[in-house]
């Protein structure tokens, strides 16, 4: 839901980032306000996941330029765990498996850690058990997942549900969901999307990173951004996602190149120095 006077949660200004010395993000600008759903689409290798991981502070990604404000504060001044406590969440594309740590202990630990950091009440094991089972019901998750090790031996779809379960527990202000739709069949997609929709309030926001339009039938975006070559090359509404679905990405890239090669554009200036 777009409201012009809504609070700005995330402000990305001319962000560039490198992986192993190679520049992947080449100047990203993005503003996300409370209540909004953004979709970031684009072909493989366009930098979508890099953007997501750079924001949450993955050590393999180095910020090489620009700045990011989260609720007006410098995001890169704080450690990844503090970003999480402040309300930033990434649903991973490939959640790691952690054998030996039970999912229930893990979920309770992260819940209580973040609750404590936010000055809210922690739950003891029994209270938490009731609480988490309710959340799992909404995600149509088998309670057996509590007794298993974190993501250990989970199917792709089960891992994604476990990510959304963590989102439901941590109640982030801004959730970035990286390819959450991949690995989900149509029923699971509907369930997961329903949970994300239920978690939406006028005070929080979601950024969906996705390759396909399919997810956007269930979580309707206010903005659709197309990434290519480490930049956002086009921004539109929900209709843009539908157009991408039928026409693919090539025409957007073509359109962007034509625009950039016009006299007066920065790319033109670069080429004709």
């Amino acid at each position: 839901m777009i409201k012009a006077d809504a609070k700005v949660l995330l402000e990305v200004r001319n962000l560039s980032a490198t992986v192993a010395g190679v520049e992947i993000l080449k100047g990203i600008d993005l503003t996300v306000r409370a209540g909004e759903v953004h979709a970031i689409m684009g072909p493989n290798g366009s930098g979508k996941s890099t953007l997501a991981k750079a924001l949450v502070g993955h050590p393999a990604y180095t910020v090489s330029g620009g700045e990011v404000l989260f609720e007006g504060k410098d995001l890169f001044a704080i450690a990844p765990e503090e970003r999480s406590r402040a309300g930033l969440f990434l649903g991973f594309q490939y959640p790691v498996e952690i054998a030996g740590v039970s999912n229930s202990a893990f979920l309770r630990l992260i819940y209580n850690t973040v609750q404590g950091a936010r000055g809210k009440d922690e739950l003891d094991p029994l209270e938490f058990d009731d609480f988490v089972r309710e959340k799992m019901k909404l995600l149509d998750m088998d309670p057996n997942f509590l007794d298993r090790s974190v993501n250990d031996g989970f199917s792709g779809g089960e891992k994604k549900r476990n990510e959304i379960l963590q989102m439901a527990l941590l109640e982030p202000k801004l959730a970035i969901l990286d390819e959450t739709d991949s690995g989900l069949d149509i029923d699971a997609l509907r369930t997961v999307a329903g949970s994300v929709n239920r978690l939406m309030t006028p005070d929080n926001a979601v950024v969906l990173v996705t390759h396909y339009q399919r997810l956007l039938n269930y979580i309707v975006p206010d903005y659709v951004h197309v990434m290519e070559g480490g930049k956002i090359i086009k921004t539109g509404g929900k209709a843009l996602a539908e157009e991408l679905e039928t026409r693919g990405y090539d025409w957007v890239v073509e359109e962007y190149r034509r625009q950039e090669s016009r006299p007066g554009s920065p790319a033109y200036a670069e080429m004709h120095l």
Binding site: V56, G57, H58, P59, A79, P80, E81, R83, S84, R85, L90, F92, P95, V96, I98, A99, G100, V101, L109, I110, T113, V114, A117, S149, Q166, L170
Partner: peptide, 27 residues
């Protein structure tokens, strides 16, 4: 990757490392 995953959920570096170390022995 495991350390980072735990940190991205709000656990400190030390807590993440101790939990993973413990998990290794828990088996």
């Amino acid at each position: 990757e495991q350390v980072f995953y735990l940190k991205s959920r709000g656990l400190s570096e030390a807590r993440a490392r101790s939990l993973l170390t413990y998990a290794f022995g828990a088996e």
